[in-house]
Design a protein around this nucleic acid. Sequence first.
DNA 1: GTCTATACCAAGATAGAC
DNA 2: GTCTATCTTGGTATAGAC
Lengths: 204, 204
Amino acid sequence: MPSEERRELVLDAAMTVFGDLGYAGATTDMIARAAGVSQPYVVRMFGTKEQLFLDVLGRALDAIMQAFRTAIAGDPDLPLQRRLGLAYFELTANRGILLCLMHAFALGADPVIGPAARCGFMEVYQLLREEGGMDAPEASEFLAGGMLANVVLGVRLFDDYDSDPAVQELMGAVFPEKLDLIRRSHPPLKAATPARGGVSAPPR
Amino acid sequence: MPSEERRELVLDAAMTVFGDLGYAGATTDMIARAAGVSQPYVVRMFGTKEQLFLDVLGRALDAIMQAFRTAIAGDPDLPLQRRLGLAYFELTANRGILLCLMHAFALGADPVIGPAARCGFMEVYQLLREEGGMDAPEASEFLAGGMLANVVLGVRLFDDYDSDPAVQELMGAVFPEKLDLIRRSHPPLKAATPARGGVSAPPR
DNA sequence: GTCTATACCAAGATAGAC
DNA sequence: GTCTATCTTGGTATAGAC
């Protein structure tokens, strides 16, 4: 089987694992396992874990930009905000895309990931402004909705969907008319979530 | 000096370091250094790094909830959205608060941090809904703006403020009338950010 | 192109002195 | 209450065989 395909497989696996655990939390070994290859092979392919993350970030950004461009060129009978919203929603089917972006966006202080994340974030903004023809308030409002969607995804709110009416209400506001779809692609990991704990006591 | 004070010092340091590097990226040694104590002492105080992060998360949530409650009870001549927006903006002065929340919100898959993050997120939503008297669309719109502000903070957009007019425009939309203030409290780390790199080549 | 074996280092946690 | 020293694990990266 072609090695180019292998590479794509590893990138897919990396996107999922990085998405769930973050850059530092993920290990090259988990990624290798998820892709069905050996750990040294994944670092062989990408040089370093950091470079692998940068490649994953680039791929996530490409996915968003392409989805938005397609939406902008799409059916002119729908308003642009609506078309872009739908395109964003579809990205949601692969939560790795959005979650890796969120992790990158939270790492602005990193000397190498930070600049890449800033640059990618602004690329998306510019796309909305220039190719999408939005003005600044429109673009930032659209981005804001997207960031909230990312957080809802990242925090795994669906895990509490059944047990908490407030979650149902909020998710209904964030993903209007799309609830059934999004729940199908993100099955809960475990049962209900307990209360957040109080302050820890020193041991002994 | 009282050990309770020491504990606060360590929590402050942890909030900053976790905010910049994330849960997994931060080390207890960095936190200890930042607080001016020894590494074993910080794990002694909190039991585990994980528990320390949970405590920091709880403290960040408390800060937000208290700020919102104060805003809700504040000057009734200003509209509620405005009061809450100002309160949120003031939280920005300590970026650790918001950044730790973002990191936690991106770790929903974690078996112990995930539930705490979900619970905290919903607490904030419920506060807006019940004590703030917002309806679901209002609350989610407000949250969306907050999440975008978090991302702008996390990705360190101010670092490129001088060199990129688009950054100025976007930040003007996200923090209206507050730009000078926010730039003062978040001085750039380094120079300009280069383009994001292409695909990495295998070595050798 | 892909693996096994392994070197090497960093980080969380423990023991125990003061 | 706080430190120094250290144990132990686990994770990235390299060497080198197939």
